[in-house]
């Protein structure tokens, strides 16, 4: 028995074991526990691409208090964050940096496009320095229209995102 076949043999078994683990975790009550914990630990990245950050601040403020949903106050480190809120216009200059920020976040990661500019370019859709299609940079989970959206509207998007997380598979 050569070295390679031994490794193949072991590889097959390891693969089968991990598949088994995935099926166990990804089904039944464990799935709900995992999704529940993800729902209550949506930590937002604070990259303010444009002016919608004023309403993001209002949502983080005392009136709505998103810590009720397990959204901790803004964390500076990207490696702890799960939720990227694209707060407004994405210019061509910012798009590169936004992509870098997205790639640095750990999986599973979720994106909310906040405001008209992040959804479609909005008021500035015909400008020379705007990225209209943010969804081509990375997949977007929830779109919130509004210019800027009310903080309640942003929170309703987070509620919608939690609903999506609750239903999703653990290993997508």
């Amino acid at each position: 028995m050569s070295q390679d076949t031994l490794q193949d043999f072991a590889g097959v078994w390891i693969g089968k074991m991990s598949e088994l683990v995935q099926t166990i975790i990804g089904s039944g009550p464990i799935k709900y526990i995992v999704n529940w914990s993800r729902m209550y630990a949506l930590w937002p990245v604070h990259i303010t691409t444009a002016c919608c950050s004023a309403e993001f601040g209002a949502m983080m403020g005392p009136r709505l208090d998103p810590e009720r949903f397990g959204m901790q106050a803004v964390a500076g480190g990207l490696r702890q964050c799960d939720l990227l809120i694209v707060e407004g216009t994405v210019t061509k200059k910012m798009a590169k940096r936004l992509k870098i920020v997205y790639e640095q976040m750990p999986k599973p990661r979720y994106v909310i496009a906040m405001g008209d500019c992040a959804c479609s370019g909005g008021l500035f859709h015909d400008s020379y320095s705007i990225v209209n299609d943010v969804h081509k940079l990375f997949p977007i989970d929830v779109y919130v229209p509004g210019c800027p959206p009310r903080p309640e509207a942003l929170l309703s998007a987070i509620v919608k995102l939690r609903e999506k997380i609750r239903r999703q598979e653990v290993f997508a």
Binding site: H135, I140, Y143, E152, A153, S156, A157, K160, K164
Partner: peptide, 8 residues
């Protein structure tokens, strides 16, 4: 104002 959608 709650107009959020999963799809554009």
């Amino acid at each position: 104002y709650e107009l959020a959608e999963y799809d554009r």
